[in-house]
Design a protein around this nucleic acid. Structure first.
Length: 399
RNA sequence: CCAGGGGUGGCAGAGUGGACAAUUGCACCUGGCUGUAGACCAGGCGCCCUUGAGGCUGCGGGGGUUCGAAUCCCUCCCCCUGGA
């Protein structure tokens, strides 16, 4: 039912073309999973996204674990039936929320942090907590698992490798991820190492709990922050286990160059015949750099989040459509885009809707962004097929 | 005409002798957003510049009291409410 194979390698780079078969359809790689955290793409329906070229969607265990929503989904017989779609799905394990609701929120950083830890770490934390009024200890990490305080109602909930896998089995996505601890760019070597050991133990526990399945496959997650020896160690270890594919998670360093370094420390130790998914990335340049370093799959909130925040993709870079200068602009969002929104509407109209806070503005921009990014991946695949990936990368990134 | 209330930055609306270039909200401008807590967050928003515990103008117009006025007094203009 599941099969991954590399179809072709670009002659001038490490970029590769692959095909991932699942019971709900085929994913052509390189590809990007559209994020639908709570079982919905914010601002768009699955069918439209599929029509625009999306081949797989990422849903989140943590969010459906909250308020025991997964029990409702269980009664329906899984996500596919609950959402009434027949597309390949993946579920994240909740491991990212260990970071995003914990250290990440506390310190106001993402997976790639460009601030200097030693100087700003405490100042940033107190500033952020002061402003948000949020409890400092939303996340407590134990060897056995993680205790969260729900940001919604303050209730405590516990997630462990076993619980995460059990819930992900109930949710029934085609591809599921091991429960890991996503560390922060601000974590030091000692902590990252400690967390890595824990994530490795959890990886084994995830596999044990998962057992065997014809309906789902499990991806293991490599951690180790931006530390060379830890990344290598983690890649070797996770590679030695019987995962179907790999996620590369955690902190990716202080800047975009660090991401490439991390990939170079990681990917060479992973089985070439298994798919590699770079979790949570990315921005356009990061996508190109990662594909160039042997990555097959991505998932990222940028296309949908940017749309909600008024940013649109164009071949000349990102534009902020809320800016008044677009109110008189008769051009489409991206003159080179062939999406239905660009065929029909002007920047002026979209700008007007966004300024007036009409939800349709966000919908239109989301449609455009999804179409645009899916089209980019199509072009990337074509460029690999035609051995001109680097050429294509150069062309797109010149802005 | 009489009685009462009121005129504050693009708008709404605080302030009622020094801490006021003036709270706050909206609007506007600029950043940020990478396994989605957040259609969100941060900053700016009179003018000038050598960017400073800097200068200038400023709370309907004009005049006055005071060391000092958006705040007190006089006068004019305008708006709202009730009464003839």
């Amino acid at each position: 039912m599941f099969h991954f194979s590399v179809l072709k390698k670009d002659k001038n780079s490490k970029a590769r073309l692959g095909i991932l078969k699942t019971p709900h359809g085929i994913i052509h790689t390189p590809n990007l999973a559209i994020v639908a955290t709570k079982g919905a793409i914010r601002g768009l329906d699955f069918g439209t996204a599929k029509k625009f070229g999306a081949e797989i969607f990422m849903i989140n265990t943590f969010h459906l674990f909250l308020k025991e929503k997964f029990k409702i989904i269980e009664k329906f017989g899984g996500l596919h039936k609950f959402l009434n779609i027949n597309y390949p799905l993946m579920t994240d394990s909740g491991g990212f929320q260990v970071f995003s609701l914990g250290f990440g929120m506390e310190h106001g950083v993402g997976k790639v942090a460009d601030i200097f830890p030693e100087e700003n770490i405490e100042k940033n934390a107190s500033k952020r907590i002061g402003k948000t009024g949020l409890n400092k200890n939303l996340v407590k990490i134990y060897e056995d698992g993680v205790e969260f305080i729900s940001p919604y109602d303050g209730k405590k909930l516990f997630l462990s490798p076993e619980i995460s896998i059990k819930v992900q089995k109930v949710l029934g996505a085609d591809i599921i991820f091991a429960f890991d601890e996503c560390t922060s760019p601000l974590h030091n070597y000692e902590y990252t190492k400690k967390a890595l050991k824990r994530t490795h133990k959890w990886a084994i526990r995830c596999l044990d709990e998962f057992g065997r399945s014809k309906k789902q496959v499990l991806f293991g997650i490599v951690q180790g922050g931006a530390f060379e020896d830890l990344r290598k160690e983690s890649a070797k270890f996770i590679n030695s286990l019987s995962f179907f594919g790999f996620g590369i998670g955690g902190s990716l360093g202080k800047n975009k160059k660090d991401i490439i370094k991390v990939l170079n420390w990681t990917v060479p130790y992973l089985d070439k015949n298994k798919p590699r998914h770079l979790l949570g990335i990315g921005e356009i340049d990061d996508i190109f750099n990662s594909i160039e370093n042997d990555i097959d799959l991505f998932d990222c909130v940028i296309p949908t989040r940017w749309a909600r925040h008024s940013s649109g993709f164009t071949y000349k870079g990102r534009i902020n459509l809320k800016s008044s200068k677009y109110l008189t602009d008769k051009k489409p969002i991206d003159p080179l885009c062939k999406c239905p929104v660009c065929k029909k509407y002007s920047r002026a109209y979209v700008c007007h809707l966004l300024k007036e806070k009409e939800i349709y503005g966000v919908i239109l921009l989301t449609e455009h962004n999804i179409f645009w990014i899916m089209n980019l991946f199509k072009e990337i695949r074509r460029s690999i097929r035609e051995n001109r990936f680097l050429e294509f990368k150069k062309k797109i990134l010149k802005y």
